[in-house]
């Protein structure tokens, strides 16, 4: 199992950990020309990471949608609001 990856080219070809990290960075920042090349080289030969890239983009879209969706949430009750109003009023009076 302990296969030695000797050349730089071999290293990126098999390094899915690095490739997927580059995929994540690519969504947000511009990769260096070398990183871009390495990622392209990796993806050309790695079907699994190509699937990952598609799904990663999909998940970003889904998360934006989920986080921005209006949700039904608990509301503030009137007793709590009255309590804050009282405190605000108290501070204003003391302030004057």
């Amino acid at each position: 199992m302990s296969k030695q990856l000797k050349t730089r080219r071999e290293k990126i070809l098999y390094n899915c950990r690095k490739a997927t990290l580059l995929i994540e960075r690519k969504h947000e920042v511009e990769l260096t020309p070398r990183e871009r090349m390495e990622l392209e080289l990796h993806l050309a030969g790695c079907y699994i990471c190509r699937v990952y890239e598609q799904q990663s983009i999909l998940m970003n879209g889904l998360m934006s949608k989920i986080f921005k969706a209006a949700r039904v949430e608990p509301r503030l009750d009137d007793a709590f609001k009255d309590e804050i109003k009282k405190r605000i009023k108290g501070r204003i009076i003391r302030g004057i």
């Binding site: 950990r17 799904q55 889904l62």
Partner: peptide
């Protein structure tokens, strides 16, 4: 999810395409 030495995906964690019943997962 990755092999600690080779840094490629462990076989049991290989991403597979999601199959959606509808056309758009969104």
């Amino acid at each position: 999810f990755f092999d600690p030495e080779l840094n490629n995906w462990k076989k049991e964690h290989w991403p597979e395409p999601f199959v959606c019943k509808g056309t758009d997962p969104l």
